[in-house]
Design a protein around this nucleic acid. Structure first.
Length: 529
RNA sequence: GCGCCUGUAGCUCAAUAGGAUAGAGCAUCGGAUUUCUAAUCCGAGGGCUGGGGGUUCGAUUCCCUCCAGGCGUACCA
């Protein structure tokens, strides 16, 4: 039995948690759940099984422990404390992570959990009525990171941007440009801002036949450039005008299913029978579709293209129609439960210590371009990805500018660059990595690093489970901190050739994991700073 | 009014399926560099986790209630 676990360990070291779980299950006969311990002094893994069996947990834990016979090689010791059963990994098991990372390299942390299942990730999808703003940057960061992580975990992920190139806001855009061209002030409720002036100038020169289309496509290409500068790419750009073509068919199907009725010259969907507050209009009395109609069609179109799971990252302003959308999908027999809607909360901008009330129509907004040029994309992404999606994040422009020089992202990047520096020194002195000498490692700082490295795959699984990227920045900061502490206390390249070789292996592995993590965040890993 | 989200250190945020002493960064104060990058390290202070109930061996986490803020509650998107 022990051999089996040992073998498992070396073929797939990242699953040590599972190995321990299996071992405890087999030897106790209890439905054991294993968790990562927060405090390394309390071991590497822990189980609270003794709390759920009734009676005194401390006594239970001791009884359970005394019944466990033997242990896999990866376990150094197992002990109880306060009713918890704590498992300490052996030094050789911890050292094994070096081999694993050295072998797997840029794939360390990846897995095949997704098994090729197809996910369509829709995010940003800003109206083509102006430049991308700060909240779009937040959604872009999160969407891009989820794309990278889910792909890393074996899902087949496409990224899509939905372009609302129809509807009222496009008419308002055209009116704004027309007003500007004729030298008038832009009327109330229309779009203002320098970009409208620039567009007007272009229109004056180019005299496009279709003003609306010209304006939309021009703005869209600017948005695309912003995203490229931000390091975020999309697989597809889907225009609402294309989706509208299939709307009559969708409405026909809904009507056939009895989910449609007419009232006040409008066409209604029976959303209230699917849990929504009230029924929703699909075709207005003027014959135009509402926003909801093409959105239903779009999501049906997504399922029809063969995706297993649809993920939408939306702003909180879209809360109102999620239930209707899911209701319509359900009505037409699509798996509404496979549509996962993630709400990326607003960003409050503070400027000069005051809340900046954002309004694109009034020309008051902070663009993503501005953020990229003032604080840089790495800092911006890190700020966005450190927060949970649901938190109402406060983006203080003054602090962001000031801290762009001392942002935590540099803490991680600096650790990475420092290790590059060490590699350079090692090369100069003719010292190389020696994987065969890693047993020489063993001080507290080194062991803490190894313990942390083991948990990287678990962090990614957490991101996959919760769709919350923020665990990665937290983890990387902790790992970088452990490295910096190690660096202050011990020399990597020293007169001791064997120890130097072992420590170079260790730093190579830390660097690899930091690099993998930064890459999943879409943040650069600089060789020097 | 109703629905969803949020409320944690002076500030910005964490807390891995309810776990052990609630953690980081910034700010404040005190230390560390003849040695691989000081964008670093070590230490100190700072908390009735918005208030009040409840469930539990155990609650920042779950339930109820109140307070504060955001969003939604359109034949806007």
């Amino acid at each position: 039995m022990l051999d089996k676990f040992t073998k498992l360990c070396y073929t797939n070291l990242m699953k040590m948690k599972d190995i321990i779980k299996e071992w405890l299950k087999e030897s106790t006969g209890l439905p054991v759940e294993v968790a990562t311990t927060r405090n390394p002094k309390l071991g590497d893994y822990t189980t609270n099984i003794a709390f759920s069996t009734g009676g005194d947990p401390r006594e239970n834990a001791r009884n359970i422990l005394s019944n466990i016979k033997g242990k896999p090689d990866i376990v150094e010791k197992i002990e109880t404390k306060n009713g918890f059963i704590n498992i300490f990994l052996s030094k050789s098991a911890l050292l094994g992570v070096i081999d694993t990372v050295r072998r797997e390299g840029e794939f360390y942390g990846s897995c095949n959990k997704g098994d090729g299942r197809r996910i369509l990730l829709e995010f940003v999808s800003a109206n083509p009525t102006g430049p991308l703003e700060v909240p779009n940057g937040r959604a872009a960061s999160i969407g891009d990171c989820l794309y990278r992580v889910l792909s890393f975990m074996g899902y087949s992920v496409d990224r899509e941007y939905y372009v609302d190139n129809c509807g009222r806001q496009i008419k308002l855009l055209a009116e704004s440009i027309n007003a500007r061209m004729s030298g008038e002030d832009v009327p109330e409720g229309r779009y203002r801002g320098d970009y409208i002036n620039e567009l007007s100038d272009e229109v004056r020169v180019l005299k496009p036949r279709d003003l609306e289309k010209f304006a939309v496509e021009t703005i869209l290409s600017q948005q695309r450039k912003t995203l490229t500068d931000f390091g975020v790419e999309f697989t597809n750009w889907v225009r609402e005008s294309e989706i509208r073509k299939i709307c009559p068919d969708i409405i026909g199907k809904l009507r056939k299913g009895g989910f449609i009725y007419e009232k006040d010259d409008a066409v209604w969907f029976t959303a209230s029978s699917f849990g929504d507050e009230k029924d929703k209009v699909l075709i207005k009395s003027d014959g135009e579709f509402t926003y909801l109609t093409p959105d239903i069609a779009y999501h049906i179109n997504k399922f029809e293209r063969g995706y297993d799971t649809l993920i939408d990252i939306l702003g909180p302003d879209h809360l109102g129609h999620i239930l209707s959308l899911k209701g319509a999908l359900e009505a037409l027999g699509y798996p509404a439960g496979n549509l996962i809607v993630l709400i990326s909360q607003w960003v409050t901008i503070l400027e000069d210590g005051k809340k900046k009330r954002m309004s694109k129509r009034e020309g008051r907004f902070v663009t993503l371009d501005e953020i990229i040029s003032t604080i840089g994309k790495d800092v911006a992404k890190f700020i966005f990805l450190t927060r949970k999606r649901d938190s109402h994040l406060v983006f203080d422009m003054d602090v962001a500018k000031k801290e762009s020089k001392e942002n935590p992202v540099y803490y991680i990047q600096y650790a990475y660059a420092r290790m590059s520096g060490i590699e350079g020194v090692a090369r100069e002195r003719g010292v190389g990595i020696d994987d065969s000498k890693t047993a020489l490692l063993g001080n507290e700082e080194e062991m803490n690093i190894l313990r942390k490295l083991i948990h990287f795959p678990e962090v990614l699984e957490e991101v996959e489970r919760t769709f919350e990227p923020n665990h990665i920045p937290t983890y990387l900061t902790e790992l970088a901190s452990l490295f910096h502490t190690f660096y202050e206390r011990h020399r990597v390249v020293s007169g001791d050739r064997d120890l130097s070789g072992a420590r170079l292996a260790l730093t190579a592995v830390i660097k690899q994991v930091l690099g993998n993590g930064l890459s999943l965040l879409g943040i650069t890993a600089p060789e020097r700073m």
